[in-house]
């Protein structure tokens, strides 16, 4: 079983985690153009590479960020998202 390290709970089996997609900046809905908003809603960067992604440790409800290589599936590091701790975006 593959192991992922939750920044709060430590190493846990992959089956305890849920994937939340790539970390992305939401454009300001008030000022974004239609094209920018559509791009944010639908388009994804699915090109292979090293990406920062949202993951959730479902047993404890901790959301965090993992930096992962989508080709080798190696996780380089996991950490708490600083802005989300402050209650911001």
């Amino acid at each position: 079983m593959k192991i992922l390290t939750c920044p709060i709970n430590g190493p846990r089996p992959m089956s305890e985690f849920a994937y939340g997609g790539e970390l992305r900046e939401m454009p300001d809905p008030a000022s974004a153009t239609d094209a920018e908003w559509t791009d944010y809603v639908f388009n994804r960067n699915s090109v292979p590479g090293i990406k920062c992604e949202w993951w959730c440790h479902t047993s404890s409800g901790v959301w965090f960020v993992a930096e992962r290589d989508t080709v080798s599936d190696i996780v380089l590091r996991t950490f708490l998202h600083v802005k989300s701790v402050g209650g911001g975006a």
Partner: peptide
């Protein structure tokens, strides 16, 4: 499979 991956590995899960 539950998450993005650009590889054709298979899993015991």
């Amino acid at each position: 499979d539950p998450y993005e991956l650009h590889s054709t590995r298979s899993t015991l899960d």
